[in-house]
Structure formats: C-alpha cells, structure tokens
Design a binder for these strands. Structure first.
Lengths: 237, 237
DNA sequence: CGACTGCTTGAGTCTGCTCAATAAAGGTGG
DNA sequence: CCACCTTTATTGAGCAGACTCAAGCAGTCG
C-alpha cells in the first residue's frame, strides 16, 4: 500500500473536537496557498492574523543567530497556527509540503470573541493543548535519548495521522524531511537516520522507501523505547 | 551585601501587570504553607484547584519512569500554578523553599470567569506567557550548549527577581539548588557546577557562597554566552 | 559536635555531533 | 524520454561535550 496516499490532505470536518466552532472562519478569512519551504509568518511579525491549516503541514520554529533551528510544533489540517500568539509572533512558521491555510484577521473576532462562547472555549482549548505539548517536549528534549525521542515522535504522529493498515501495521505518514524531524527533536539529521535504521532493524518499524512515512509493526516495542513518563506512582485508577 | 535578603518573599502588589484582577482571590481561597520539597500537586491529580504563590518558589516538573526529572517552570510570588491546566495536571508541583500559596477552587470562578472580563483577560495572559516560556525552553533544551543554557537561565532569573546592586552589579537570588537548576536545564548537576565556575572564572558573574544567588558583573558577557535567538534578519525597527 | 545534604573537582566513558563521501530520488529542461 | 542536476538520505570515522562514577569538602541543622 502507498502510505503517502493516507495523508490527511484536507480538513477532516469537525474531527478535532476542541476546534469546533471554527467552521465559519473560512467565510471570514483569506485562503492562501504555500509551496514547500515557503514562509507563512516571520519571528517578530505583528500577530494581526492567525491561520487555520486547510491542507498540508505547517511548522513553527525558533532559530539562533548562528543558524541552529528548533522546530516548536507541526500543524495539520484543522489546527490553528498563531492563534495563541500575543502582540507579536515569537516564532516563524513555514510550510513543510504544499499547503493551504485560511488567514483570519484577529480584529474580526471582536476583541477576544466576546460574543461567541464556543469560540472562546475553542481558543482556551487550543492554548491549553499548545501549552501541554510544549511542556511535554521540554521533557523529551531535556531528559530523553535520541532513541526515546524518535519513539515518542512516532507515537505522537501515529496518534495524529496514523491509519490502521490491513495487515495489522499502523501506517504513519511523515510529510516532513529527516532534517525537519531532527530540528524538532533537537538532534542531528544523521542521528535521526541512524536511529530510524536501528528501530527498523529490530522490526519495530518499517520505513516507507522515499521517507514518506513509517509503518509501526510492533507498537509495544516503540512504547517501550519511548520511555513513557511516570504519571501515577501507583498505576492509573 | 547579602543577596539572600533580596529574595522577593512576598507578593509584590500589582507588580505583574497581566495578573491584575486576581487580587481578591485571597478572599476566596485557602492559604497553605509548604516546606522545601513538599508536594503541592501530583501529576495526574484532578485539577480542581489552582494556586497563587504568595511567598517562596514553586517548581512544576515531569518525570520518566526511571526517575529522570525535567523541571518545567519556576513560579514566584504573584504567579499562578495550575491555572492553565485542563481536567488533570500534566505535571507535578513542589515547593523549592519555604513557601505559601493560596489555593482557589476552580468552581468558584464560574465556569470560566464568564462574569469577570478582567479575569478572563488574566487567564489568557497567563496561558500565553506559559506557552511562550515553554516554547523558548524548547530552543534552549534542543539546540543550546550547557554554557548557553546557564547564561539564558541567569538572564531569565535576572529579569524576574534581579536587583541592581550599589556597585553596579546585578544581584540575582537563586532559591533553588544546583540539582534543580540542572533538572530545569536538562543537565547533570556536576555540569551546572562546572559551568557556573567557568563563568565565574571569566569574571562575568560571582557566585554568592552558599549558592544563594549570583551577582552579574558583566551583563554583556552573559548575553553573548546566551547565544540569543535571531528574531529579525534586518534588525529591529 | 557529628551527621547530613549539597557543592566541587577529577578521571574516564559514551552518546550524539561533525566532517566527509556515496547513493538514491525527484525535478528540470533539452 | 532521457540526461543532468539538486536535494535528501545513508553510512563511516573520528571527535568532543556532557554524563557517570567517585572522592573530598563545606556549610547546616539537629
């Protein structure tokens, strides 16, 4: 089977619960199409617009003066980029693959969506998920090995865009390059390649040839390699 | 001079702008006193309360099954711990030093502080600052060296609790131990000690003997060592 | 005054990075 | 349609920053 075909290239209508209530945004905003590598926002820009991903994948990132780059998050169709920003964007954003977004001026939402409680709810949810994701990644980047980070990343992607395959495998499309995975996980690209190869050698995953995605063959092995966090000392209720 | 005396041990009334409007919380909540190392919340707890720090310092953290720990953030008097959580806390929180908090049940705020726009504003601000801080730390942890992380950390602390000294130095109290700094910066405690010693050797900082804080002697040197992020390719407007 | 906790310092190791060369895939234009 | 060129991934060798293990020291608290 072709993993690339499993990409969710369009917005799954109302799939992401917390974003409900944003459906009418398309009516207000402007559609914009982006090629791979094309910038959507620059760090420091006035944050007068936010962007709903309609198709493709967007990455937000921060960079140091000497060119090192850290990808903060990946955004898929249905996600909101820059919704959580303050006055100015604290990060840049660019397209990973061929993407479309709907850009909505903040002003059009009233000061803070005062009228629309569902929208306010949605904003809070988006913010909360973004906080929790960023904090989780602090653990990844601060305390996990390359192998663990990769495993965590694959599980995250599996949870977002994974599709159960007919042969029992979990097919996970990966629209980003290995360089971008490296910039997300705080690793060198060579380390990503090597670690992926190592996971593949054990049979836990299978890499789809032109690095279009992976198939998770042994989910337990990946979960074990991810070195899960320890939520409850006594086990879950 | 005694750096420890510069600790902001009580809430600076209305010092933190975005938290304005929380003043009356103390009337609703319950005061709780914590000893060093005492837990305030556990990862996985139902998030039915949030906590305003009145005195001391609180750290939030995540841990792996094998005991590695990543400190997510430090909270000083005036800050709100757990305000941004969802249903359950995704992290634990414990006191760094002798601390007091005011614990406020979420239920007492209405569903989301619907009545009080200032409070809603405050919640959004708190969330936004937490997002931006967590994302900034992704850059630190993913792409910066031990030396850079330490320098960034010192600048962050200086911005929060630093006091200009009479001799031109910037006095920065550090209530946390080096182990806790290490857990915050994703380093080993030995590395923190060594790197701090190295910065002191160059004259950029001076460590106050019982590790109660540092005095920044050469701010430019620390800023240079921090390897600032690159916001604008062309310089700021 | 003694035990403990936290910091310092040293020696050796290792994970992951750098540099480099090769290979494969995809896009472009003739 | 094919040849070329660019981009991305793979693989190897060597290096180094940060970790681990370990011993010693100082300040604190009981």
């Amino acid at each position: 089977m072709n993993v690339a075909a499993a990409h969710p290239t369009t917005v799954p209508a109302a799939r992401r619960g917390p974003n409900a209530g944003f459906g009418r945004l398309e009516a207000i905003g402007v559609i914009r199409h982006l090629s791979p590598r094309e910038s959507l926002v620059f760090e420091g820009d006035a944050a007068d617009c936010f962007h709903r991903v309609l198709r493709g994948t967007i990455a937000t990132y921060k960079a140091t003066a000497d060119g090192r780059r850290q990808i903060i998050a990946f955004f898929y169709p249905g996600d909101l980029v820059g919704f959580t920003a303050g006055e100015r964007f604290a990060y840049g954003a660019e397209a990973i693959d061929r993407s479309s977004v709907c850009s909505v001026p903040r002003a059009k939402l009233g000061v803070l969506g005062d009228e629309e409680p569902a929208l306010r709810e949605g904003l809070l949810s988006a913010l909360r998920r973004e906080v929790e994701a960023a904090q989780e990644r602090q653990l990844w980047l601060g305390r996990k090995t390359a192998r663990e980070r990769l495993a965590c990343f694959l599980l995250e992607c599996a949870g977002r865009t994974g599709q159960a395959g007919p042969d029992g495998g979990l097919s996970v499309p990966l629209p980003m390059s290995q360089l971008e995975v490296a910039d997300y996980l705080g690793l060198a690209p060579e380390t990503v390649s090597r670690t992926l190869a190592q996971l593949a050698r054990t049979g836990a995953i299978e890499v789809v040839p032109p690095f279009a995605g992976v198939v998770v063959r042994d989910r337990h092995a990946i979960e074990a390699a991810a070195g899960e966090s320890a939520p409850l000392p006594g086990g879950s209720a």
